[in-house]
Structure formats: structure tokens, C-alpha cells
């Protein structure tokens, strides 16, 4: 039976570009023969990557606006909210455009974008962060009320010690126990986690560069 074989152009492209950029990272530009060329090519592809990432972000924003516009037109669930998303998105962008062409983008006293950021974005962001206090306290209390394991007890104990050591000046806790917990024991756990994340990222990157994973399709 004859099978339809299609050459995996996309995978070849991803692997080739990825290898050039990776080699550009690890082979110094002073290396003989290929060093300078690899570094220049790597830099060029990084510039291409920045532009493509920006365009991808723009495509995502257009998609977001299109989805909310459809929901607004078809009277879908939470119609008003979708309308607000589209209108505020366009309005903010228009204000940014005015700022750019009038040269106000970097001027905090005149910039319309910074005005919107200061009076809408920042209050909502900070209020959401403030809400976290109540939610985190509630979660911690729920944890206390459940049957507790040794690790949960350690977690809550350390949390209390560090919190009290930060907020109050308690002898021995503030100056000895809290820094010791934060700078030795927590660093050990965090370093293990970071190394694990690094190894996981390395493995995922190598899977893409070897063509095993092809999230772009093809």
C-alpha cells in the first residue's frame, strides 16, 4: 500500500534555527572558524524571535478581542463584561497611540496611558493582591482544622516563625531563628526545586530540538 509521506519542513526549520541559537550560546564568538558567524547568526535569530514573539502576542490579543466581540454580539454569557473588555482594550490602545504621536509616552504628567495605569490598573491589581490576605488566612485556618501531617505542621510552624520574626522584634526568633530558616533551610529546598525546574526545562528544550515534541504541528 502506498503511503503519503510529507517531508517535515517545519520540524527541520525549528531544529536548524534552535541549534544555531543554542550553539551561539555555548560557543564563544572568539572561537576559531565558526565562532563569530555562529554568534552573529544566533543574535540575528534572537532578534527575529523577539519580533515573532511580539507578533504572536498581537495575534493573541486580536483573538481575545474577537472572542469577546462575538460573545457581546450574540448576547452570550456575561455580555456586558465582554463589551467592557473590547471597549476598554480599544480605548487604552487609542490613548497609547495619542501618547506615542504626541510624544507623551514617557512623560508621567501628560501620558494618558500612565493615567489609566495609575487609576485603573494599579488599584485593581493592588486590591486583588490585598484580597489574597483574606484568602490565604482562610486557607491556613482550614489547614489547621484538618488532620495534620508532619509536613503540614512544619510548613505552618515555619510560616508562623518567619511571619512573626518579620513583623515583630522577638529576641532570638527575629535575629537568629528566622534568618537561619530563611538563609539555610529554605535556600536548600528552593535550590533543589530550581535545579529540578532547570533540568525539566533542559529536557523539554532538548525534546523540541531533537524533533520528538512538535508543538507547532507537522
Amino acid at each position: 500500500m502506498k503511503q503519503n509521506f510529507r517531508f517535515p519542513w517545519s520540524a527541520v526549520l525549528a531544529i536548524a534555527v534552535g541549534f544555531v541559537v543554542t550553539l551561539g550560546y555555548f560557543i564563544p564568538s572568539s572561537a576559531p572558524v565558526v565562532g563569530g558567524t555562529l554568534a552573529s547568526l544566533g543574535d540575528y535569530f534572537l532578534q527575529v524571535g523577539v519580533v515573532l514573539a511580539a507578533v504572536a502576542m498581537l495575534v493573541g490579543l486580536i483573538n481575545l478581542a474577537a472572542v469577546h466581540w462575538t460573545r457581546f454580539r450574540t448576547a452570550g454569557e456575561n455580555r456586558l463584561g465582554s463589551g467592557v473588555v473590547v471597549i476598554t482594550m480599544i480605548a487604552t490602545f487609542l490613548l497609547g497611540t495619542i501618547d506615542y504621536f504626541w510624544g507623551w509616552l514617557e512623560d508621567p504628567n501628560r501620558s494618558l496611558t500612565q493615567y489609566v495605569f495609575r487609576h485603573i490598573q494599579l488599584p485593581v491589581e493592588r486590591s486583588l493582591m490585598a484580597l489574597l490576605v483574606v484568602i490565604l488566612t482562610y486557607m491556613a485556618i482550614r489547614m489547621f482544622r484538618r488532620r495534620m501531617t508532619v509536613y503540614q505542621a512544619v510548613f505552618l510552624g515555619v510560616f508562623m516563625v518567619v511571619l512573626l520574626g518579620t513583623g515583630l522584634d522577638i529576641p532570638y526568633i527575629t535575629d537568629t531563628v528566622k534568618p537561619w530558616l530563611s538563609n539555610v533551610w529554605a535556600v536548600a529546598g528552593t535550590r533543589g526545586l530550581l535545579l529540578g525546574i532547570g533540568l525539566g526545562t533542559l529536557a523539554s528544550g532538548l525534546r523540541v530540538l531533537s524533533g520528538v515534541d512538535r508543538p507547532y504541528g507537522g
Binding site: 519542513w9 517545519s10 520540524a11 526549520l13 525549528a14 531544529i15 536548524a16 534555527v17 534552535g18 541549534f19 544555531v20 541559537v21 543554542t22 550560546y25 555555548f26 535569530f45 534572537l46 527575529v48 524571535g49 515573532l52 514573539a53 507578533v55 504572536a56 535550590r191 530550581l194 535545579l195 525546574i197 532547570g198 533540568l199 526545562t201 533542559l202 523539554s204 528544550g205 532538548l206 523540541v208 530540538l209 508543538p215 507547532y216 504541528g217 507537522g218
Partner: peptide
């Protein structure tokens, strides 16, 4: 697809470079 492949290839290379130089080497050195 070609644009996505380029973006993913560059992204994977940056992730590898960042993980090795920025995380693995620096944490091991520390």
C-alpha cells in the same frame, strides 16, 4: 506553521541556554 516552528525553535534554544547558564551552573556554583 513555519513562523511557529521558528518561534518554538528559538524559544527552546533560549530556554536551554537560560536553564543551563542561568539556573543549573549558577545554582551549582552557589
Amino acid at each position: 506553521r513555519a513562523s511557529m516552528a521558528t518561534l518554538v525553535g528559538i524559544g527552546a534554544a533560549v530556554a536551554i541556554g537560560g536553564a543551563v547558564i542561568g539556573t543549573l551552573f549558577s545554582q551549582m556554583e552557589a
